[in-house]
Amino acid sequence: MTWLSVVATALWAMLPAYVPNNAAVLAGGGRPIDGGRSWGGRRILGDGKTWRGTAAGTAAGTALALVLDALAPAVSDVLGVTLPEFPIVVAVTLAVGAMLGDVAASFVKRRLDRERGAPVPGLDQLDFVVGSLVVTAVAAPGWFVDTFTLPVLAVVIVATPLLHVSTNAIAYGLGLKDEPY
């Protein structure tokens, strides 16, 4: 694989996992997943994790994967790289896994006594990546192994925090987030 192929595959394959949390921010609000309940004297997840945001994020990531499938042949021709296509199970698991990873990170943050929006470097940037990769590996192991080679995973691990910080700063600048990280 050329470096272009590795980078293109990494970013293309992760797009359906990158979008859900952003869509959840835009569509969020409403009833919290934890219903306002606490555990050990702290909220289980907090008000930032809502059913509406989770559903919107999952739908957005899944829909994006389907759009990418339609675009894959043309983009592959332009780049000279064969980009992966997303079977429906993968389209769903990348998005659902991203949302589950984010929810799990909120649970961990509450256990660490961190307030909503408080930064936890590393966890904030990779929670959704781990969630999407684990859920997809379990649901579609063949696709996962074919797509996420070690070089592709390395690009995902390095590029994701950079993309995450950049997009959060933009969302903060647009007034869509309360914190720039």
Rank of each mutant, 00 (worst) to 15 (best):
A169N: 08
P161G: 09
L68H: 01
T58I: 15
P73Y: 11
Y181P: 01
V90G: 10
L64M: 09
R110D: 04
A140C: 06
A139C: 12
V165S: 00
R43Q: 14
R52P: 00
G173D: 06
L64H: 01
R42K: 13
V103S: 00
V158K: 10
A72S: 12
V7D: 09
F128T: 02
A8Q: 08
V81Q: 13
M1A: 15
V156T: 11
I33W: 00
W12Q: 02
H164S: 08
S132G: 09
G46I: 04
P180L: 11
G40Q: 14
A17F: 03
D34H: 06
P161V: 08
V145K: 09
N21S: 11
G53A: 07
V165R: 06
V155L: 14
P32C: 06
V90Q: 06
Q125S: 07
P20G: 05
W39E: 11
G142Q: 07
P87L: 05
R42D: 13
P73C: 12
A65H: 02
K49P: 06
A72V: 00
A24Q: 01
L94Y: 01
V78W: 15
S5K: 02
G46E: 12
D146Y: 06
G173C: 08
L68V: 00
Y18L: 14
G57K: 00
L150P: 14
P151T: 10
V129A: 11
A98C: 11
T2K: 06
N168M: 11
P141G: 05
W51G: 08
G46S: 07
L123D: 05
A171Q: 12
T136V: 04
G117N: 13
V6C: 08
A91C: 10
V81Y: 14
G101F: 10
V134L: 12
